[in-house]
């Protein structure tokens, strides 16, 4: 059984589905809305990873716990990229924490909380693995700078995520190739990835509608 092959099967469709969302980012206000949504999502990442590492350790899954702990180190500081980009795009980062995230955002993140607490933390590995296959391309930030008229310095969040950190991807793929908890672990891992794919496409559509309505 190959979970990576299933993830690869979904990746092209996700890239196509993201296209209309990105094409709607044509003004600084629209880009700020995208950044605000990114803030809503990334603020939840630290808590998810901390809980996943803790629960994995409790289950005796040392390799999984170590990978989540390493990912936690990797994610530190990314929130400050979003805030800096938001300011560079003309926004006040101090307002981000007061936002009420949209339901599609809550569903995308909330599914992972559910699987983590009521199934197995390996679900979060499926979530992250799918996102790893959907990193921003090298030309995306420049394309958005042209579309919005904003300076290149307003896209640190995107440029900082183009390349995976050295060694992290290989360690992730090794865990995917032999997920813990046997067949149940395989099914939870798959469920985590499928929930993320469905959550992403719903968020793409919801955000596209909001972006097209922004000034």
């Amino acid at each position: 059984m190959s979970v990576p092959a299933l993830l690869d099967l979904l990746a092209p469709g996700l890239a196509r589905a993201a296209g209309p969302m990105w094409r709607a980012v044509v003004t600084p206000a629209a880009y700020r809305l995208w950044l605000a949504t990114t803030h809503d999502l990334t603020r939840a990442t630290t808590g998810l990873l901390e809980e996943a590492a803790e629960r994995s350790a409790c289950l005796g899954e040392a390799g999984l716990a170590a990978w989540f702990a390493g990912q936690l180190d990797e994610e530190r500081g990314h929130g400050s990229w979003v805030a800096a980009d938001y300011a560079a795009a003309g926004g006040d980062p101090g307002t981000l924490a007061e936002r009420v995230p949209c339901p599609a955002t809550a569903r995308l993140v909330g599914a992972q909380h559910y699987y983590l607490r009521h199934a197995h933390p390996v679900a979060l590995l499926g979530h992250i693995a799918l996102l790893e296959r959907h990193r921003p391309g090298r030309t995306l930030a420049a394309a958005l700078a042209r579309q919005t008229g904003l300076p290149p310095g307003a896209f640190r969040t995107l440029t900082g995520h183009v390349a995976p950190p050295a060694g992290r991807r290989a360690a992730l793929e090794a865990l995917l190739a032999r997920p813990p908890a046997g067949e149940r672990g395989r099914r939870v891992l798959t469920a985590g990835a499928l929930a993320t794919a469905e959550g992403l496409v719903e968020l793409f559509s919801a955000l596209r509608t909001e972006l097209e309505a922004s000034p």
């Binding site: 196509r16 993201a18 296209g19 094409r23 995520h161 794919a197 496409v201 719903e202 596209r208």
Partner: peptide
């Protein structure tokens, strides 16, 4: 079900997606 949603979200403009589109979430 997900593939149907992906197709619906992508629309009929295959090949017109922003090159290198992805997410950071």
């Amino acid at each position: 079900r997900i593939r149907r949603k992906l197709d619906d979200a992508a629309g009929d403009v295959e090949g017109h997606s922003l090159e290198g589109g992805g997410v950071v979430w």
